[in-house]
Every structure is written in structure tokens, then in C-alpha cells.
Design a protein around this nucleic acid. Structure first.
Lengths: 235, 235
DNA sequence: CCAATAGTGTCTCTTAGACATTATGTA
DNA sequence: TACATAATGTCTAAGAGACACTATTGG
């Protein structure tokens, strides 16, 4: 914060979004195909520049809206952190602030103004390196994945992947997909129903063929999950 | 990431540091008195502008070195996140990336080039609002406090507050000061010594008058604390 | 009746939390 | 010996994990 004639360097600030959903039983992220250099034709996380007078989170929600056409107000949005490696953008110094969003079934994304295409992609292809992303977006996505995984343990975030009303089995599927494990349905049911404030019974039940209908629940008030749902360890 | 003639807004990027230590039994943060506007004469977190070709963490370590005269390599440094409210700096749009550092007993800080003074301050005075900080630094410090508190639960971070060799009681004091609670010395001793990889016995012991000497330990390899040391709940 | 899925119960082992006792130094 | 601080032990209750059974739908 020096002001004795020396002028600080200015740089570009962007927001990038890691938007997860569960599609066909696979944890998937929203990616867009870049239409302009650098990395034209390469897939990337949705994102863009922050306006001069625009709060960071507003910018993130704006980009989310532009890329998905979804009312971003309903979505849980959480800052992942800043990524500012001087070499991360070949053009110029660009510091990006990454946000994480978890979404239930969304309408298929439509390409925005500055993207050729937009689509959901199973994160395995990205994490494994099979599909390369522009810039350091693979690293950012990796951070988002880690964050989502650990937040499932001690918050009631998992329900953000579900619709307004959901069953215990659907909720368990969220955990299983994000953690890439199998959980015991009985122990899961016991823990989740006993966690105070997590679930709110609706009294209604699913109508499906070939099995006993499941109770439907809504999100409860609690944002923290106590006691936590611990991810199974290798030990 | 548009490049069709439109030029993105550029802004200043800074780093700010929440540096905690324990002084006289109180959790304290390093603050500096600003020598130049805005907020000249007001206390603030140490920090400064990021250079055009400087990685964010390098900038944080540089500022840490400049403000404390300490070899910042040994210190645990963790990004807290970006703070970018458009109104947070009256001069100009400034996005800051905050870092958290935990330090054992440090040499008394010496004022840097752009600060009149530097000192440790018990965080209670800051959190309570008794001492006002410049910009949104109180909010940032509050974030750092929350982060430190929760990280103590499931990481072996607490030892970062201790010197190279420390006793169980010293370690327990760290938890008690940061969490502002009392912990049962016996249960704490059991948990912490059983946590795999947390502690490494040195075989040596303290020499102090008026009590049985305590065993001295070093940090172990583990960075995660399993099972976690849960903060006592009000329930 | 059978298939399929949902929900409940039981047992064991580990851990947290409360509390008493023993150990080892100095004055 | 008195005192102060460190370390260990014991009990109880709660939760995790493994597993078997009952319930409710559609064909």
C-alpha cells in the first residue's frame, strides 16, 4: 500500500466456475469450448472477466447465468480461492478467483456469447488428463473436487445435488458418486435421519414400479452435519 | 476471456497476511500502523501489492519477510481466499488475496518501509471492534480465525505454534487458546499421543523447577490428524 | 408367489468424556 | 517432606461398521 509516486502493477481479474452435477450416475462438470484465442477450440471452465465495479460473487453468478441460463440465485456458491500463477495465461498476468457450485439436474447448457459450445463432462475424463482443459483449469477443477468431497463430510451440502424433494437413496447416491465409494444403505439411513435439522419429512412418497415406495424429504434448516458423515478410509 | 477489441478492466491485486502467534497466553495477530493514506495512522494487516511477474504466494512470503524479518520458508502459509468488494479500498478497485500463517514465538516485529510501527495485538481487541483495522481487515482476520480454529480439528497444524521441540502441555495450550476453551489434560494426552504420525518422541525432557519434567516431542510426518480432535460443542 | 426396493433392529468394537491415581522432579 | 506438574488407568455412554430381517409396492 505504497503511494509515494510508485504506481502498482495492474492486472486482469477473472472468475472461473466449477459447476458440478450428477449425470447418468457420474459426477460431471460444466465446460465450454473456447471460441477465441488463447486456447481457441479447447474446453475450459466457464468464466470471464470481473467488471471494474462488480463484486466477485456477482461476477460469478453472472457468468453462471450466461453459461447455463439458470437462475443462479438458487445455487449454492462457494469461493474456492485465487489462482494467480504468472504463467497461467500466455497473454497477460491474470489472477482468477474460482467458485464452486453444486447443481441438481439442470437444463442442458447452451453455448454463451464467447463460447462455441457448452456441455457436461464426466470429471474422470478431466482428472485423468484424457480431456485437456485450457489454462490451469484442471488444477482448479481438482481443487473443487477436493472441496466438494470434504464438505460432504461435515455439511448438509449433498442435498444441493438433489431436487426440491428427494429420497434417502438419492441422497446416498450423491455421496457414493462424489466419494466414489459404496456406503451401507442401512447405516447411512440411520445416520442421516438422526442428524438434527438435515432432513424434513414431507409425508409423501415416491411412486415407482418394482419396489416399496420411498419417503420423500426436503432440506432441513441445518447447514452443518453433526455428527459428520465420515468418508470411508482405506484403513 | 473475450478478445474482440474489448479491453478488460484492470485492477490492483494485493496480498494481506493474517499472522497468528500466542503471546502471554493470548492469541495475537501481527498488525502494522499505516504511514500513508488511505487510513494513515490506522492499524492494518501486513500486506502489499503483488508484482507483475510475482506468484501470489511469493508475494505473501516477501511481505511476511519484510514485516517480520523472519525466514518465511519455515512458516506454514495457507491461502484464505480472495476479498474483492468494490468498495473495500476508497482509492481504487483492489482485489486482495489473504494468507494465513501460524508462527511460534517470533522476534518482536520491526516496522517495515511503508509502516510506522509493527506489533502483536491480542485478537480479542480486534474481533470485538475495540481496535479498528483499515479496509476490511477485520473481516479477513475473522476468516483467518475461523480457518485456524477448524484446521486444528483435523490437521496437525497446532504444532506450527510451537517451537522445534515442545511438550504435550504446550500443545494443549495452543488448542485451549485458539479455541478459547479448557481441555481435559488426560484425554488430550491420550488422543494426541495415539494419533499416528503426529508426534515424534525425542527422548529428552524439560528441565523446570516445581514439577515433574515433561517429555519433549517433535512434529511427526502426518499432516492430517486422525481421528480428529473435535472442538467441544456447547451441547 | 416372486422380484425389487425401502426401512428397522442387533451386535461389537472403537472412541469420547468424566474422573482418580501414580510418577518424578525441585525447594 | 511438601509441592507442583506429568503421565497413566478405569468406567460409561455414544457412535461406527457389519450384518439380517421385515415392509410395501408391482407383476
Amino acid at each position: 500500500m505504497i503511494d509515494d509516486g510508485w504506481v502498482p502493477d495492474r492486472m486482469c481479474v477473472t472468475v472461473d466456475l466449477v459447476i458440478f452435477t450428477i449425470l447418468d450416475g457420474a459426477l460431471s462438470a460444466l465446460i465450454v469450448e473456447r471460441g477465441i484465442p488463447p486456447y481457441a477450440g479447447t474446453w475450459a471452465l466457464p468464466g470471464g472477466f470481473v467488471g471494474r465495479h462488480e463484486p466477485l460473487e456477482d461476477a460469478a453468478r453472472r457468468e453462471l447465468r450466461e453459461e447455463t441460463g439458470l437462475g443462479a440465485e438458487e445455487l449454492h456458491l462457494e469461493q474456492l480461492g485465487a489462482f494467480g500463477d504468472p504463467e497461467r495465461d500466455p497473454r497477460d498476468r491474470v489472477v482468477t478467483v474460482a467458485y464452486l457450485a453444486l447443481a441438481p439436474d439442470l437444463p442442458l447448457p447452451t453455448a454463451g456469447t464467447d463460447a462455441r459450445a457448452a456441455r457436461w463432462m464426466a470429471i474422470d475424463s478431466i482428472v485423468s488428463g484424457q480431456l485437456a482443459l485450457a489454462f490451469d483449469h484442471r488444477k482448479i477443477l481438482r481443487h473443487g473436487l477436493d472441496r466438494a468431497r470434504s464438505k460432504l463430510e461435515y455439511t448438509s451440502l449433498a442435498s444441493a445435488f438433489c431436487g426440491k424433494e428427494f429420497t434417502i437413496t438419492e441422497l446416498r447416491n450423491v455421496y457414493e458418486v462424489v466419494w466414489n465409494t459404496k456406503l451401507d444403505p442401512r447405516n447411512f439411513h440411520r445416520k442421516i435421519t438422526r442428524a438434527p435439522g438435515f432432513l424434513e419429512p414431507t409425508g409423501r412418497r415416491t411412486t415407482r414400479d418394482g419396489g416399496r415406495p420411498a419417503e420423500l424429504y426436503r432440506r432441513g434448516d441445518a447447514s452443518l452435519l453433526h455428527p459428520p458423515m465420515l468418508m470411508p478410509t482405506g484403513s
